[in-house]
Structures are given as C-alpha cells and as structure tokens.
C-alpha cells in the first residue's frame, strides 16, 4: 500500500459539476417518462383526466433542460479550464493521450498491476463521452423532431422537422427509443468505472464530482 502524501487539486469547475448532475437527473426523468410514453399504463378513469398529458409535459420540460445543459457543457469545453476542454475528449489525437489510453487499457485488461494516475479525465472515459455526446445529439435531434411535428409551421419544426422528410418518422422514433438503451449501457459502464477508480486510485474519484477536488500524487506546480 502506498502511503505517499497526496495533494488536493481543484479539477472540476462548477459548470462541469452542475451540467453533470443536471444531465444525470434529466436522463433519469426522461427515461422514466419516456418509458411511460412508450408503454403507457391505463391510469385514466375519465376522458377529462390528463395523466399522459402531464407525463409528456414533464418529458418535454426535462428535454428542454437536458438540451440546454448539454449545450452549456459544450460551450464550457471552450471556456473552462483544461480539464473541461474539448481536447480532453479526443485523447487518441495526441501522442501523450495515446500513451495514457494504452496504459489504461492494459490496466483494464489485467495486463498491468499499476493504476495509471489521471488528474483530469480518464482517457478511456473521455473516448466514451465523445460517443455519449454524439448519442445526446442524436437524442436531442430525434426528440425535438418528433416533438416539433405538433406545430409544422413553428420554429422548432424549421430547426428539426426536416429530419422526418429524409428519415421516416417511425425510424426517428425507433432511434430515439433504442438510443435510450445505449445510454443505459453507458450508465452501467460509467458507474462501475467511477466506483472502480475510486477504490483503486484513492483520488476521491466519486466525491470529486460533488466537490470538484481530486487528490493526486503530484503537485500542480511540480
């Protein structure tokens, strides 16, 4: 066991943490309401009830919140510190990033015993996040495309409605539905890896998403 002194470092700025938890909350709400919309329970007792109406309303409000949160995170990748920056999301583009990725892969496949330290993002994680953000974009585009069809003369339809001219609406719906499971698959991976790294690195991986601080072997001004 290592008993080296570790240094506290401020890594995740406030917008990063907020976007993370808003996204997480939105994904939970959107998945639950989305599953209800796909498989509604016959809760209505009279035609003047509004169960489906309210659940769709919650889905749409959460969808707007999610879209704004994702947009803010993308913007912050140009405004925030280097750990939040967009370069972090393409680790294989640099030699150092490739080295880090390879070391992490070797550790994950039980080829190395030493946990490679990562101060900011784990390079494997950011590679997954790049796909995740592509998935978010797909979800936002397909979701707003389906939503906008209620008002074909509206601004949203101008922005997203063109999708259903090229992709049949039912295929848009299928993409929107199946992408949810891909996000679930990511969530399984994400929670597991955060837990694993928290145990193995002793760098406060999980609590850093609340506090912003991580504990690393090297000092910032090293």
């Amino acid at each position: 066991m290592n008993s080296q002194c570790k240094f506290k470092q401020y890594i995740w700025e406030l917008p990063v943490r907020w976007c993370h938890w808003v996204n997480a909350a939105c994904i939970v709400v959107l998945s639950l309401t989305g599953l209800f919309i796909a498989y509604p329970a016959p809760l209505g007792k009279s035609p003047s009830d509004f169960y489906m109406g309210w659940i769709r309303f919650i889905h749409f409000v959460a969808a707007y919140t999610f879209a704004v949160s994702v947009a803010c995170r993308v913007a912050w990748s140009f405004l925030g510190n280097k750990y939040a920056g967009w370069r972090e999301f393409f680790p294989v583009a640099t030699a150092k990033g490739r080295r880090k990725t390879l070391a992490m892969l070797r550790y994950y496949f039980f080829l190395d015993k030493e946990v490679p330290e990562t101060i900011g993002h784990n390079p494997l994680a950011t590679t997954a996040y790049t796909f995740l953000f592509a998935l978010y974009l797909l979800m936002i585009v397909t979701g707003f495309c389906l939503y906008s069809t209620h008002a074909p003369q509206g601004i949203l339809f101008m922005l997203f409605g063109w999708v259903q001219v090229y992709v049949p609406t039912q295929i848009v719906r299928l993409l929107h539905h199946t992408s949810m499971y891909l996000i679930f698959g990511f969530v399984v991976n994400h929670i597991y890896s955060a837990w694993l790294m928290d145990i193995k690195e002793h760098g406060a991986e999980i609590s850093s998403m609340f506090s912003g601080y991580r504990f690393t072997v090297h000092r910032k001004d090293d």
Binding site: N2, P116, I119, K200, H202
Partner: peptide, 13 residues
C-alpha cells in the same frame, strides 16, 4: 487482484 495505486512511478505529469 492486488494492484498498486498511483505513486511517483505511475503518476501523471
């Protein structure tokens, strides 16, 4: 498995 947590030999930076 027994593995080593990050120390000077594996630290980043």
């Amino acid at each position: 498995r027994k593995d080593k947590e990050p120390e000077d030999s594996t630290r980043e930076g």
